[in-house]
């Protein structure tokens, strides 16, 4: 089954690319100014809390990207429209990078705050499992040469792995963990001061722009990869 995407849609994505790159860089520059210069240090953690401004958006988008990945795998499984498969493969690697970044920056924050780089509590362990799920998804697809079969197996893995997402989200509420519970939730006022929320939200917007920019580049890459694979066979 061939993917039905109009050429002018691809052209539209292509022409948006430079603007998206510019917007991402712009948002990151503003975000850096706010998070390193403008925002005050925390009353206990001091300046080490500035790591939060990159750690928290990374973790948010690690979870969000996986939800989209699992969602498009479900849609692909049911409808077998190859477009959903392409979407899943476009965003998987960006999600993996964000997961890795939240693990690394969290670890660097943990050393001065907790006194250790790593602990095996529920939140950290489930986040590490998410990283392995991303890797497994990406490598399974590459390792199996029959691409129809590869899509089936990797999609099944992504869907089963989705059970990890609510576990990550609620691990800090369900079990005693060393990781603190969420500071920002819908049900209550955030326990972060406004002067610290502003840089956090700018950095979140910048990370979102990065996610969109790279995902669209990868979308074109995956489409063309599919075409090359098809013509070379």
């Amino acid at each position: 089954m061939y993917i039905k995407i109009k050429n002018n849609h691809i052209e539209l994505i292509k022409s948006a690319n430079p603007y998206l790159i510019f917007a991402t860089i712009f948002a990151f520059v503003i975000g850096l100014y706010y998070s390193l210069f403008q925002s005050p240090p925390d009353y206990i953690q001091g300046d080490s809390m500035r790591i939060m401004y990159i750690h928290v958006p990374s973790a948010w988008f690690a979870l969000m990207t996986y939800s989209i990945l699992a969602g498009s795998c479900v849609l692909w499984f049911i409808t077998r429209n190859p477009l959903f498969n392409v979407v899943a493969r476009s965003i998987a690697q960006v999600g993996m990078i964000f997961t890795l970044m939240s693990l690394i920056t969290g670890s660097i924050w943990g050393k001065p705050t907790w006194g250790v780089w790593w602990v095996w509590d529920a939140r950290l362990t489930s986040m590490l499992i998410l990283f392995f799920l991303y890797i497994a998804y990406i490598f399974l697809w590459q390792a199996i040469s029959n691409k129809e079969l590869a899509s089936k197996i990797s999609a099944a893995l992504a869907i089963i792995g989705f059970i990890n997402i609510p576990i990550i989200k609620f691990s800090v509420d369900w079990w005693n963990t060393l990781h603190q519970p969420a500071s920002i939730s819908k049900l209550s006022a955030p326990s972060i001061d406004v002067s610290m929320l502003i840089p956090l939200f700018i950095m979140t917007a910048a990370c979102f722009l990065f996610l969109v920019t790279v995902s669209l580049i990868r979308f074109r890459l995956v489409l063309i990869e599919n075409k090359v694979l098809r013509t070379s066979n």
Binding site: S48, R50, I51, H55, I97, K111, V214
Partner: peptide, 23 residues
Amino acid sequence: MGGYAIFVWSSYGIFFFSLIIFF
């Protein structure tokens, strides 16, 4: 960075280096 220089700068450094390389 109030004595946290290594931690703050290395985390920001690794973060942006990885994002740029990936891009």
